[in-house]
Design a protein around this nucleic acid. Structure first.
Lengths: 337, 337
DNA sequence: GACACAATTGACAGCGCTGTCAATTCGCAG
DNA sequence: CTGCGAATTGACAGCGCTGTCAATTGTGTC
């Protein structure tokens, strides 16, 4: 009926244990044997039964991707990361599961425990903002569950993938400066998210670099949502000295800013330039198309997962890989008039 | 170390097999025994090891959600369905895996086979448009893998969830008619998708109902993407007798239509009304906010998965559940001027 | 060519659970 | 109170694989 490891062994003329070694890519098998076994596996279309492997070997071949569905419900950003993680897991024949983990409430560590106890993932991929919850990271380390992060705030003791968001934000603001803008506002994200901090820092760095003194009125707190972008922009546009450009910490808020501009009868980019961060699909579909920073989310998910898999497969420690970004200049930014 | 079924049995004073029966909710256990066992499980925080259960019981407790990442890359629609499926699986302690399955090429049946052989899902949730590939459904039936569909084209021999999309489309067009529109255009989706057919049929039904003869020029083929919406709208707006309203078969295309209107200097809704279908998050964020049909995607994913789980848990056949829709009238539709 | 040592291979038990089927207990008619 | 069928419970093997450790084969040295 089903082809078992034993059947492959018989065909290859070796013991089951040797087939197991080949299957798991272990050392101490001669090339000749390895090839014979591999050939037998292929000829018989052998598919190892993962439940048996898990039971006997005490590992699950499972990678869990954790995300916070509290702050970002069903975003394309996460969908893209998931896609990348899945691809990486596939290439190494690992399974992937996705787990929402609400960070609200103080029982998230308990819920993390439940996920680990119920599913026994061999490793975990963390996505923002749960890359930075100290109690959660602590628990993962206590339980010896390897993990990799996408865009973690801390660069030490972390493997996964990161992007120089501060430099990217600075580049964006320098683009505005080079167009001639001086009154540049910033709509920041949720305060304790790494993304917010870096993007704000990049904004400040660029402004300071141009010799401009920060006007506190021009930095408004948002929450990464469209609605918060609208609210922030209303506040900015009501100022006596209106900004000529607004840099929002993500594209959702930038669309909100554009919406508010429309509402107030301000033309983008003639009356006010607007730019964002992330390059979500919507960005290029807005009217006018949004100038933003392109972040290769899918690739980042893949790279983070690959670093985790390095560790799981005992190939070493894994790195925190730096990803490149690019400035996508579109139609929402122009010289001030 | 780890609490095993045997440990629970000892504590409850029964045999392991009896604990197993309770765990699997089997018949022929007295209430007294069942309660004693349940209490022991809780007291010991017993977590059954799914790999052992799978190996011994020859089932995986795994539900695979298949999607076609060819036609819809990383859409929020799928993310929402996934969320619902996950929730349903969680409540019955099933695992969920997501699998992209490109429908391009003719080897997708082979790739389906690989998924089944490699992961042994107990059941499968199908999402549009792969709810309707006959060879795929045939293979699933041959291999006796139960499946449930989200919005399948055929209502016979299918369990899962559906919505009366034709009625919804008709309702949308009737809304336009009631505003006084007569030259109403339709941008349809990919021809062989059920969604396209129903929405087009609903459009026709409403138009015929109003005694209008269809003008073939007013029905343009799109492909569910923003870009295809733009292209279709350019064609429509170039007509000598421009439509006063455009009903796009989904929101992505509707945004494209709005974009093209902008491009041509047409004001929405003053010069042309635009409406879509799906109510993606973007819809309410557009300027003006898009009139559309709200489809409860998350809930639909959940319901489809629950129907599948009914079958998997031997509770009966499962239904094809009808979901309600709602017409969301926003700012992109108005009386023709 | 013999020896020590390393590399390769295999025998066997057992991972934690469930299927099968036999043993026991229960409920009830007579 | 006995006997009989049905309901409940348990004994035991085994699912397909890997860990442990012993047996075997190969390699280099003097």
């Amino acid at each position: 009926m089903r082809v078992r490891l034993e059947d492959v062994a018989r065909r290859a003329g070796v013991s089951p244990k040797t087939v197991s070694r080949v299957l798991n890519d272990e050392a101490n098998v001669t090339d000749a044997t390895r090839q014979r076994v591999t050939a037998a596996m292929e000829a018989m279309d052998y598919r190892p039964l993962s439940s048996a492997r898990s039971l006997a070997g005490n590992r699950s071949f499972l990678v869990a991707m954790l995300y916070d569905n509290n702050d970002n419900p069903a975003s394309t950003y996460l969908a893209e990361i998931q896609d990348g993680v899945l691809e990486a897991c596939d290439t190494h024949r690992y399974n992937m599961m996705v787990r929402p983990l609400r960070m609200r409430g103080d029982d998230f560590v308990r819920r993390l425990d439940a996920v680990i106890s119920d599913h026994h993932p061999d490793g975990i991929v963390l996505t923002p903002p749960i890359t930075d919850y100290a109690p959660l990271l602590k628990r993962l380390r206590e339980r010896h569950v390897p993990f990799a992060s996408v865009s973690p705030m801390s660069r030490v003791d972390n493997i996964g993938v990161a992007m120089d968001e501060q430099l990217a934000a600075r580049t964006m603001v320098e683009h505005l400066l080079s167009l001639g803008h001086r009154r540049i506002a910033h709509v920041s994200g949720i305060a304790d998210h790494g993304a917010s901090r870096w993007r704000l820092a990049g904004y400040r760095e660029a402004m300071a670099g141009a010799g401009l003194v920060e006007d506190p009125k021009l930095v408004v707190q948002g929450a990464f949502t469209f609605a918060s972008g609208v609210a922030a922009a209303r506040q900015l546009f009501a100022l006596k000295k209106r900004p000529t450009a607004v840099f929002a910490a993500n594209d959702d808020m930038a669309s909100g800013v554009m919406w508010a501009a429309n509402e107030r009868g301000l033309k983008v980019p003639q009356d006010v330039s607007v730019c964002g961060f992330d390059d979500i699909p919507l960005a290029s579909q807005l009217w006018p198309a949004l100038t933003t920073i392109r972040q290769p989310s899918r690739e980042m998910g893949k790279v983070a997962a690959l670093q985790l898999l390095e560790v799981l497969r005992g190939r070493g420690g894994g790195q925190l890989v730096q990803m490149p970004f690019s400035l996508e200049i579109r139609d929402s930014t122009a010289r001030p008039s």
